[in-house]
Design a binder for these strands. Structure first.
Length: 290
DNA sequence: CTATCTGTTCTGAC
DNA sequence: TGTCAGAACAGATA
């Protein structure tokens, strides 16, 4: 799924696009991806768009809010009224099926469509159908999100000491597993875990209890750095991620290790390696990371 | 064609 | 209780 920088990029775009608009209808094409009674949000105005971990929260007038998880391949694409159908950025190659899943909407991966009263639409696409949209009672949602998720990396309470405390709680885990566990720290996934560990000079396989305090210090700075790079370039479109206008992010052009296996390390010139760790592809530089 | 990969997370088996 | 493979699903890639 999109990770924190991608979801945050979507949130910012969405906030600009839909706050103040009234939800006129919801077309649920794949019922298992939509939980709750859509009638409870129809006719209501969107008040705000938030984020917690890798999830989007749409704050709707009244008692109910929407929670959206994009998982691996979910997309939220917004189209103003004038150009519903064809992307402003993309051409449709004559006769060829487009690999760009946002060029024509709705398409075969479009499972839920929100209609706003001004004629604009929000398309929820998901190739693999892992993502979902759920309606929650607002209080219950707030409780659930604080209960189940770890500290936000951009929060002021995410300090070096806090990170040290988190690491000490899972002394036998490898450090990458700690970074990607949403109940400990929220928002970091496979890409930004690898990138953070590169910037920190720490191997992803390192066991928590072997990590010294000066390394925790570097890791804390590096997590924020990796996520900020992601955010600055509008997220990474290595796979199926698009911004809400259908444009790609550029963060993948700034990766140091993720998807760089076999290439030369930009810092030391060594060859980037790829292994499997915790069941996931894991990238690192043997020269820079110890 | 077959095997393995993919930005996630939950469940069930041991 | 902790860990891990497999599941949910669909496609790209070698």
């Amino acid at each position: 799924m999109p990770e924190l920088p991608e979801v945050e990029t979507i949130r910012l775009g969405l906030k600009k696009a839909i706050v103040g608009k009234t939800i006129a209808g919801v077309d649920v094409r794949v019922p298992k991806l939509f939980h709750g009674d859509k009638k409870s949000i129809i006719g209501k105005k969107v008040l705000d768009v938030g984020r917690r971990a890798k999830q989007i929260i749409i704050d709707v007038e009244g008692d109910n809010d929407l929670l959206i998880h994009l998982k691996m391949t979910g997309q939220l694409i917004y189209r103003p009224k004038q150009e519903s159908g064809v992307a402003s950025h993309g051409q449709i190659a004559g006769g060829h099926p487009s690999k760009d899943w946002t060029a024509v909407l709705p398409n075969g991966t479009t499972h839920i469509i929100f209609d706003f009263s001004d004629g604009s639409k929000l398309f929820f696409n998901d190739l693999r159908k892992f993502g979902w949209i759920k309606i929650f009672e607002a209080k219950e949602l707030k409780h659930k999100l604080t209960e189940e998720l770890g500290v936000e990396p951009f929060d002021k309470e995410f300090t070096t000491d806090e990170l040290a405390k988190i690491i000490s709680k899972k002394s036998n885990w490898n450090i990458k597993k700690i970074l990607t566990d949403q109940t400990l720290i929220s928002g970091i996934g496979n890409i930004y875990a690898d990138e953070s560990l590169f910037w920190a000079g720490i191997l992803p396989t390192r066991i928590a209890k072997t990590i010294k305090y000066d390394e925790v210090l570097r890791l804390h700075t590096s997590i924020i750095k990796a996520l900020q790079i992601g955010l600055k370039y509008g997220g990474s479109s290595e796979n199926t991620y698009y911004k809400i206008d259908g444009a790609k992010g550029q963060a993948q052009e700034h990766f140091q290790v993720y998807a760089q296996e076999g290439k030369k390390c930009k810092r030391c010139g060594g060859v980037i390696q790829k292994i499997k760790l915790n069941g996931r592809g894991t990238h690192f530089c043997p020269g820079c990371q110890k």
